[in-house]
Write a protein that binds this DNA or RNA. Structure first.
Ligand code: FES
Ligand code: FES
Lengths: 144, 144
DNA sequence: ACTATAAAGGACAATAATATCTTTTATTAT
DNA sequence: ATAATAAAAGATATTATTGTCCTTTATAGT
């Protein structure tokens, strides 16, 4: 469904949001351990998330990554996915045709678009704050 | 969503089904032109489809690929996807956790599984014969 | 038997995705 | 100023996916 990069990005973002919500900034080592991802690769992904204003980064001692609580209210999963995987998941043809639209549809088009839209809505309607609140229940995990 | 291999496989299978339905066997060149796919690569994919009894192949003059009409009634898109991409699309965690189940869910699990199941049902409930019938309307395309 | 056709199979090549390593820049505390 | 911490940036390595090329096997028609 999503690329590895995107999966790590989602896990990292959710973890950072969770920690930020309880007032913690987290560094690379902490993040990659918490989400069980390759550290150096995760660093690259965090750079992209920072450049695209999904997360904030502060260098130096007591620095690290964080997300402001206000931002969590509006930031959704779709924003993260778009940074890493672009919008192909929303616009791409299920059968790989170069163009996907109602004018020249592939045989799967209408069935596929219906599901694609549901995925899109789910990702757009799920904010980081919602997930952070969910995770207070302690039944959700970010690794293994 | 699907790998390139799987996309080509789906397009090829639908094209072969369509042609078989009107009594034609089709060869590699015809297929790769009809679905606009790299010919040699498509050959490899057709081998897999043949080995897994999705399509039939006959060597030699007047040979080619075909699917029997009886088989089209039961063969669904899910069978094709599973040959090329395995079942990861049905069983894999949206956030890339090694295990996806209700016992140790990721924060996206329940929302994700709902959509995954819809995709699964769509692919399982769509038979090749249904698509072939749809394509008689002449509004659906397999390339560009 | 010979030739043409067409799929099957094996080896190889190019590209993209994933992952690592090293150096640089910024910040804090001593 | 110096040392320590931590992210940013750049270069490189590994692996998987995608794609091509060449040879072999099977079949049909002459
Ligand atoms: S054209 Fe294939 S999904 Fe829209
Ligand atoms: S555990 Fe992540 S989708 Fe099921």
């Amino acid at each position: 469904m999503f690329s590895k990069s995107c999966e790590y990005a989602l896990r990292a973002t959710i973890f950072i949001a969770q920690q930020s919500h309880i007032g913690n900034k987290v560094n690379l080592t902490t993040i990659s351990e918490a989400i069980d991802s390759p550290q150096a690769f995760t660093a690259k992904i965090l750079q992209q998330l920072t450049k695209n204003n999904i997360v904030n980064a502060i260098k130096g001692p007591h620095g690290g990554f964080f997300i402001e609580t206000e931002a969590m209210k509006t930031l959704n999963l779709s924003a993260v996915v778009e940074v890493l995987d672009g919008d192909s998941i929303y616009t791409g043809c299920g059968l790989g045709l170069k163009q996907c639209n109602d004018k020249k549809p592939c045989p799967l088009h209408f069935k596929f678009v219906a599901i694609r839209e549901e995925l899109k809505n789910m990702l757009q309607n799920t904010t980081l704050l919602m997930l952070v609140n969910d995770m207070e229940l302690d039944i959700f995990h970010l690794k293994t």
